[in-house]
Design a protein around this nucleic acid. Structure first.
Lengths: 221, 221
DNA sequence: ATATATTTTTAGATATGTCTAAAAATATAT
DNA sequence: ATATATTTTTAGACATATCTAAAAATATAT
């Protein structure tokens, strides 16, 4: 049985591994977990004992197959609960993260199964991220940062890299939502800011914002 | 902010106070919490510091008004989640206790409010126990143990004193459920066992069982 | 290639919640 | 009322998860 803390470490490592094929650095974990590097080292010893990570001094860590599965199941629970909060309890998508952070640790396989069924077996959460299946398989869609698109390219907004409250509120204010149609109208070479048409409104967005929006390109019909 | 452990102690004391108007004994709490008396003493010091209990050495503890409110809100959350699990996720009433024990600690007032609304503002949980309102007020119905009834008295089953898995399964097997119509057909003076008619079936039940069933008496029309 | 900076680990301390064993207070029985 | 039993508290130890400060290893820069 994993403690809440252990589960949170596994999830942090899982997310960090997405953009890092070498071992995940102690410091990176410490930053994500809002703790100190020394605490991370302690926990890596513990998770290594439990065969959930492969850890070599100074070389960073990787999740084992079992560690990956455990982490994926937590992500699955997090995203299912987010669906529940938004679809059933009518929270808005920028309010649900902190609550789902708590709910993801509830231990009951039956609960997750029944929740999944109750929600109609959703495949993505309200932020557009894929929901792993029972076996930990993730059916990901090919996503690309909006910042990588050329002028005139059309796309659909799938998810966001930054899911901080501040960023989500920024999007809400501009009425930018998952599923929005996004077309690149012009790119300013000086600072890589973009003029984009999102659904029917035009917005000028900074490169930083464009790098935090993940889209699926669609044909320019 | 209360820790999970502190919340569980408050809840335990709250439940023990229902059948105890003097201070709740250290040993009683220890037994309920499955821990040692010395641990209870330690925690009572802590909760007393926080003004959630009134504690005098060797005299047992009582919840303060604030402690009672905190405990009541936990009970409210527990019972709302039980409703959710049974009504929405179609768990049976004997499966939900352990899961609700976890869910009751999720911290978000907005979540509780929205859940309450989603469930249609239920007034009792699947075991027939009243759900406290937002302010901690409990609109309790007058309940009595089935064992206290006379022959020929009719009643409705409202809740149970023993909510162990074993007892709930016993009830399920005999098709005894919250809301069942219960009529005392005969009482055996030797051992106080009872012949009762529950809905359309007759059962012979021991005094122990009769003391664990809480009913509301109804007119003998 | 050596000095400097950064990252990571180790060692030891702290806080929470737990325990055992012994001491103190209270309750019970004759 | 005194002895005995029970309950409760105290004192000190232990495990988990954390921290700070110093040491060790690795990375970077000239």
């Amino acid at each position: 049985m994993l403690s809440l803390t252990e589960e949170n470490y596994l999830k942090a490592i899982f997310h960090l591994e997405q953009t890092q094929e070498k071992g995940v650095a102690t410091n990176a974990i410490a930053e994500k977990m809002n703790t100190k590097a020394s605490s991370v080292t302690d926990m890596m010893h513990k998770l290594s004992e439990k065969k959930l990570v492969v850890y070599k001094k100074y070389q960073g860590v990787k999740l084992t197959a079992e560690g990956t599965l455990k982490a994926t199941i937590i992500v699955r629970k997090h995203r299912l609960w987010e669906c529940f909060l938004v679809d059933k309890l009518s929270f808005s998508w920028d309010e649900v993260h902190d609550i789902a952070e708590q709910l993801e640790h509830i231990k009951s396989e039956a609960l997750v199964d029944k929740l999944d069924q109750f929600l109609g077996f959703p495949t993505t959460d309200p932020h557009g991220d894929p929901i792993p299946d029972k076996d930990g398989k993730i059916h990901a869609r090919k996503k690309v940062e909006l910042a990588a698109l050329k002028e005139n390219q059309k796309s659909v907004l799938l998810s966001v890299n930054d899911s901080s409250d501040a960023f989500l509120r920024y999007l809400d204010k501009k009425e930018i939502a998952i599923g929005s149609l996004v077309k690149v109208m012009a790119i300013e070479p000086f600072d890589n800011s973009m003029l984009v048409k999102i659904d029917s409104n035009e917005h000028l967005i900074t490169e930083e914002v464009a790098r935090n929006l993940l889209v699926k390109e669609i044909a320019n019909k």
